[in-house]
């Protein structure tokens, strides 16, 4: 499975997006705001835990988070470049 699809699956599970399938998630769409997935601040915390637990990535710089969690694509790019698992 490609990383982008794996990420979508894990996000659906971690964020309880029960009404969605991976195909519903546009990898370029913003994660936050009405135009995108509409995630909230608790979801971000859950995504940080997801990256740590699954890929061994610890995000300690809050400024980095804003760039990483722009879209599923930016998340996947960051994971591909920084994963330790």
């Amino acid at each position: 499975m490609e990383l982008i699809d794996e990420l979508k699956m894990k996000m659906i599970e971690a964020l309880n997006l029960e009404e969605m399938t991976p195909a519903d998630i546009d990898e370029q769409a913003p994660l936050f705001g009405e135009e995108g997935l509409g995630l909230d601040s608790i979801d971000v915390l859950e995504l940080i835990v997801l990256l740590d637990r699954t890929y061994g990535i610890k995000i300690e710089d809050p400024k980095l988070g804003k760039e990483i969690f722009t879209s599923v694509r930016t998340m996947a790019d960051y994971v591909a470049a920084n994963r330790t698992k």
């Binding site: 971690a14 964020l15 608790i42 915390l45 859950e46 835990v49 637990r53």
Partner: peptide, 11 residues
């Protein structure tokens, strides 16, 4: 060894 407190559950 699997210490990942879930923020979504904690709230």
């Amino acid at each position: 060894e699997e210490f990942y407190p879930s923020p979504a559950v904690f709230v």
